[in-house]
C-alpha cells in the first residue's frame, strides 16, 4: 500500500520509550544516582553492591515486564478489534482473563474449601502462573469450540462475555465461603503486578511473547483484508477459518501468559489500539502493529512510573493506575474526534 512516511513518528516514540525506560529504572524506594544506573546497565560495576542488586534483580526485570505486558496486551487488543470489527473488543472480552481469574481463584480460594492437598506448594512462585494459564486455556478452548459452531463473530464476542459473567459468579461464590486471608491474597493478585518476575520467569515469558509477536507478522495481510469484512476477505483469497483460528490463538497465548505472570491488567488492550489509530490516522496493520507495540510499552511504563511515585515504600496497584490514567485519555480523544474506527 502507498504509505505516508511514518519514520519520524516512530523515531520520536522510540526515543520517548528509551527515556521512560531509564526514568522507570531510576525511580524507586531506594534513591540511586542516575549515573550509577547507566553504569550498571552498561555492564560496569556500580559503587554500591546493593544498588547493583536492586537495579539488576528488581528494577530492570520490572521495566522489561512492563514493556512486554504493555505491548503484548495492545497487540492482543488490536487483533481482537480487527477480528470482531468492533472498537469495543479487547483481549479480555473473550473470557481469557476471566478464565485466568477463575484458575487463580480456584487455586487460592478453593484450597481452603476443598481440603489442603494442594497447599503443599501454594507459595512456590510457579503455582499461580500455572493455575492462571490453565484457567485461561480452559475458558478459551470453550470459546474456540463454540466459535466452530457459531459463524457470526458478534455471537462469539457475546459468548466470551457470558463466560466472563459465569466465571465471575463462581469466583463470587468461592469468595463468599473463603476466609479473609485467602480473599485478600486473591484480591492482591487481581490488582496486577509487574514486579514479581524473576529472570527465569521473565525468560519464559519473553520467549512466548516473541513467538506470538512473530506469528502476528505473518498475519498482517489477512488482518488488512479483514478490514473489508469477511466476505470481501474471502473473495481476496483469504482462508477465513484458518486465519480466524490463528488470530484467536495468538490473542489467547499473549493474554494468557501475561495474565499468568502479571495478573489481569485492564484497559491497555482496549485503549492502546485506539490511541495508535488516532496518532497515526491509519487502519493499515503494517503501521498499526509496530505502533501499538511501542505505544503499549510506553503507556504501561508511564503507568508503572506513576504507580511507584506517591509513596516511597508502597506502590499503587498497576491495574488501578491503567484505568485511572487511561480512561480519561480515551474519553478526551473521543470528545475530540467523535468517532472510533477499527
Amino acid at each position: 500500500m502507498e504509505q505516508k512516511n511514518y519514520k519520524k513518528h516512530f523515531a520520536l516514540l522510540f526515543l520517548l520509550l528509551l527515556i521512560l525506560f531509564l526514568t522507570n529504572i531510576s525511580l524507586g524506594s531506594v534513591n540511586i544516582p542516575f549515573k550509577e544506573i547507566l553504569k550498571t546497565l552498561s555492564g560496569r560495576i556500580a559503587t554500591k553492591e546493593s544498588w547493583e542488586i536492586i537495579i539488576l534483580n528488581f528494577r530492570l526485570p520490572k521495566a522489561i515486564t512492563a514493556i512486554l505486558v504493555g505491548s503484548g496486551l495492545s497487540v492482543a487488543g488490536l487483533l481482537m478489534q480487527t477480528l470482531f470489527r468492533n472498537p469495543l473488543a479487547g483481549p479480555f472480552v473473550l473470557g481469557v482473563s476471566s478464565g485466568a481469574s477463575l484458575g487463580v481463584a480456584l487455586f487460592i480460594l478453593g484450597t481452603s474449601l476443598f481440603g489442603g492437598f494442594l497447599l503443599t506448594d501454594v507459595f512456590s512462585s510457579w503455582s499461580i502462573p500455572i493455575a492462571s494459564s490453565f484457567g485461561a486455556f480452559l475458558v478459551l478452548s470453550a470459546v474456540i469450540l463454540a466459535s466452530y459452531r457459531v459463524k457470526n463473530t458478534m455471537s462469539i464476542l457475546i459468548i466470551g462475555l457470558m463466560f466472563g459473567n459465569f466465571t465471575a459468579a463462581i469466583i463470587a461464590v468461592l469468595a463468599y465461603f473463603s476466609p479473609a486471608e485467602q480473599i485478600q491474597q486473591y484480591i492482591f493478585w487481581s490488582f496486577g503486578s509487574l514486579g514479581n518476575l524473576s529472570w527465569s520467569e521473565l525468560s519464559i515469558f519473553s520467549s512466548i511473547y516473541t513467538i506470538a509477536l512473530l506469528a502476528t507478522l505473518f498475519i498482517t495481510k489477512p488482518l488488512n483484508s479483514f478490514l473489508l469484512g469477511e466476505n470481501y476477505a474471502k473473495s481476496l483469497g483469504i482462508n477465513i477459518k484458518k486465519n480466524k483460528n490463528i488470530i484467536l490463538l495468538i490473542t489467547c497465548v499473549l493474554t494468557g501468559v501475561i495474565t499468568a505472570f502479571a495478573g489481569p491488567i485492564a484497559f491497555i488492550g482496549l485503549a492502546v489500539p485506539h490511541i495508535a489509530r488516532l496518532v497515526f490516522t491509519t487502519s493499515n496493520h503494517k503501521i498499526l502493529i509496530p505502533a501499538v507495540v511501542i505505544l503499549g510499552a510506553i503507556i504501561l511504563l508511564i503507568c508503572d512510573t506513576i504507580a511507584q511515585l506517591p509513596a516511597n515504600e508502597f506502590t499503587l496497584p498497576i491495574n488501578a493506575i491503567t484505568s485511572l490514567f487511561g480512561a480519561p485519555i480515551v474519553i478526551w480523544l473521543l470528545l475530540r474526534k467523535k468517532k472510533l474506527y477499527i
Partner: peptide
C-alpha cells in the same frame, strides 16, 4: 462488489483498491 456496508475503518481509497491485489502479493503484501 457486495451491497454490505464496509466496517468503519480508516483505510484510504488507495489502500482499499490496493487490497484488490492481495491474491497476487507475497506474504508481506
Amino acid at each position: 462488489v457486495l451491497t454490505e456496508r464496509l466496517p468503519e475503518s480508516q483505510i484510504t481509497v488507495f489502500e482499499l483498491i490496493a487490497l484488490g491485489r492481495q491474491p497476487y502479493t507475497n506474504w508481506l503484501d
